[in-house]
């Protein structure tokens, strides 16, 4: 049924993605591709994988952005310098998922029990309307199979009793080397995802669309100003340094001194 569930889901499973610690290594995207090209929703088609014009379905894409904040006092740009933010993009499993309601066949649906948005590939006619309806670009069309593909939140892992319990989470979460991805139930206030969202001010993407996405993104922590060295120094320069009061406090040696003194 492509009407959305009328009762609230008892569980609201989703991801928290930490934009502060994501290093843009694409391990989540690659492990997603690896699991899902062999899992229940296989294959994730690759067209021309070794040719000049490679193309294929990925359910997770990692974008790199240059972010320039405005000056706290003047509100003008150009003084704070830029920073790089890596941004993994995948299905957010919205509560008011427009990709579900536009589906003419019932292939696109939202599970009542945990809120996961899925495509039943046996019912999909490949009209692509769901991908048009999603502002986040979460769905990619498989031209080979003629059906739509999307993130399943690794539904064939998280409930899979053949896997060790520690592995019963999405492949992207397992793969992340900087622990920037977390999986859990947002309806449980004690879950890690709920607590991270509360502690770090997790945000939803395009809140102006009102789609109530489940996944939350943790904004990058404030960065040190370029050149102030604040991220390296705990104590005033010179005090407690290995070189003593007369030790080097400038240049490369000063930097080594400060790092060793932490």
């Amino acid at each position: 049924m492509t009407s959305l569930p009328t009762t609230p889901s008892p569980k609201r499973l989703g991801l928290v993605i930490d934009l502060d610690t994501c290093v843009g290594c694409h391990a989540c995207a690659v492990s997603c591709k690896e699991w899902n090209t062999g899992g229940n929703y296989a294959p994730l088609t690759d067209l021309n994988p070794y040719g000049k014009d490679v193309d294929g379905v990925w359910l997770n894409r990692v974008h790199g952005f240059e972010v320039e904040t405005a000056d706290d006092n003047t509100g003008a740009y150009g003084t704070n310098g830029g920073r790089t933010v890596y941004f993994p993009r995948s299905c957010l499993h919205c509560e008011d998922a427009p990709c579900v309601t536009v589906c003419p066949t019932g292939a696109s649906f939202k599970r009542v029990e945990d809120g996961i948005v899925l495509v039943n590939e046996d019912k999909c006619i490949g009209c692509k309307l769901c991908s048009w309806a999603c502002p986040y670009g979460a769905r990619e069309f498989d031209t080979d199979g003629g059906v739509m593909k999307k993130c399943t939140l690794c539904i064939d892992r998280i409930y899979n009793e053949n896997l060790e319990e520690v592995d019963r989470q999405p492949a992207c979460v397992n793969a992340c080397p900087s622990k920037a991805r977390h999986f859990g139930d947002f309806n449980d206030p004690t879950s890690k995802v709920s607590q991270l969202t509360a502690d770090r001010g997790g945000v939803e993407l395009m809140p102006e669309m009102g789609l109530k996405p489940t996944n939350r993104y943790l904004p990058p922590r404030p960065s040190a100003q370029v050149g102030d060295g604040a991220d390296l120094v705990d104590a005033p320069v010179g005090a407690n340094s290995a070189g003593g009061p007369d030790g080097p406090d400038t240049g490369f040696l000063g930097w080594i001194d400060r790092v060793l003194s932490r």
Binding site: E68, A70, D72, P219
Partner: peptide, 18 residues
């Protein structure tokens, strides 16, 4: 779209890099 709107006193400029 990237959830970075709240960074800074006014929304930051976000440009594609990689």
């Amino acid at each position: 779209a990237t959830g970075l709107e709240g960074l800074g006193p006014v929304p930051p400029q976000v440009r594609p890099l990689d």
